[in-house]
């Protein structure tokens, strides 16, 4: 029998609801992202956005999937990691729905969900995953019953670096797409600090240097070009290190920044060199959305891993490697 799951995602700037069936069909995936007029994301404002838009988004997700609330057999929510107010708002909606519909509740790890939806789409069994977004920069692979973080940023996430730079260049949040467009016009490469430490990396020095280039009169397209080449080059290197180290045969690129074409091009070059398969998660599944939560919720539910409403407190600092992944073979 097919199980139908409603997944709610709300860890940061986006709220999403997705309906997915246990045979791996994404029946709907609706989301909305808060876009402040200026500045970045305030956790309280984002949480208010989720509570205001949430019910409508959930209704749309059910309509698009062609199901009614009574068809939902399982509710999954993003339990962490993320911004506390956003997580709590989303969890509240999920708990109410689960109680009201008398269906089990599943608390999903946001990072794990990005990987699992990527595996569903690509058919990959056991990839090295490069997960890049506004809040995360991690290279993750499965080992010994858990998803382990082989490398990550030691300071700020790549998306955050792009947004902060974009803000100083007068761009609106999120700045990634505009930086990508500017970079395509860039011609001249200006050296920026390249900081790889083992399989970890650091972007704060690069950010400072890039802002200095801009205020020193270097044309914006050239600065954007140099930022992309340097930041993505560093990511390529830690991905390569993880592939060489784990000897895995698949490379998955996911998260909001996966939408960037130049990053995709560089990582596919890495894959060719190391003779591994490569997949970039398609834009509609790359960012934060509910379908990934719903799908991971199904995997987790089938492995007998649900949570009681009374014990479903959010986990803002939930590390990727803290969860035992019961649905994957050791």
């Amino acid at each position: 029998m097919v199980t139908i799951c409603l997944g709610l995602e709300g860890t940061a700037h986006s709220f999403g609801a997705g309906v997915v069936s246990s045979d791996g069909k994404v029946m709907s995936n609706v989301w909305d992202m808060i876009r402040p007029q200026k500045g970045g994301i305030h956790p309280r404002e984002a949480a208010r956005h989720h509570s205001e838009k949430g019910p409508t988004i959930i209704r749309h997700a059910l309509e698009e999937a062609g199901v009614t609330a009574q068809d939902i057999q399982l509710v999954a929510f993003s339990r962490g990691p993320g911004l506390g107010p956003c997580l709590r708002t989303t969890a509240t909606m999920a708990r109410v729905l689960a109680l009201h519909l008398s269906v089990p509740l599943v608390g999903v790890n946001h990072c794990v969900a990005h990987i699992e939806i990527g595996c569903l789409e690509s058919g990959f069994q056991d990839p090295v995953t490069v997960y890049v977004s506004g809040g995360n920069t991690q290279v993750i692979a499965f080992a010994g019953g858990r998803f382990r973080t082989f490398g990550e940023t030691l300071d700020i996430a790549i998306g955050n670096m792009l947004d902060v730079f974009g803000r100083s260049a007068g761009m609106r949040f999120p700045a990634g797409p505009e930086i990508e467009r500017e970079a395509q016009l860039g011609r001249e490469y200006h050296a920026l600090p390249y900081s790889v430490k083992g399989m970890d990396l650091s972007y704060s020095g690069m950010l400072t240097a890039a802002r200095r280039l801009l205020s020193g009169g270097v044309p914006l397209p050239d600065v954007c070009f140099s930022i992309q080449e340097t930041a993505f080059g560093m990511l390529a290197e830690i991905a390569e290190r993880a592939i060489a180290h784990t000897k895995k045969r698949e490379l998955l690129l996911t998260g909001g920044v996966a939408r960037n074409s130049r990053l995709t091009e560089i990582l596919s070059g890495v894959a060719v060199r190391h003779d591994v398969r490569f997949h970039r998660v398609s834009p509609s599944l790359a960012g934060d959305q509910g379908a990934m939560i719903a799908w991971t919720g199904i995997l987790q539910y089938l492995a007998g891993n649900t949570v009681d409403v009374a014990e479903s407190q959010v986990l803002p600092r939930w590390r990727t490697d803290e969860q035992e992944i019961r649905w994957r073979a050791m």
Binding site: Y189, Y194, G233, E265, S268, R273
Partner: peptide
């Protein structure tokens, strides 16, 4: 590494 910018 041909996929990186040649200067880097």
């Amino acid at each position: 590494k041909p996929y990186l910018h040649d200067k880097i």
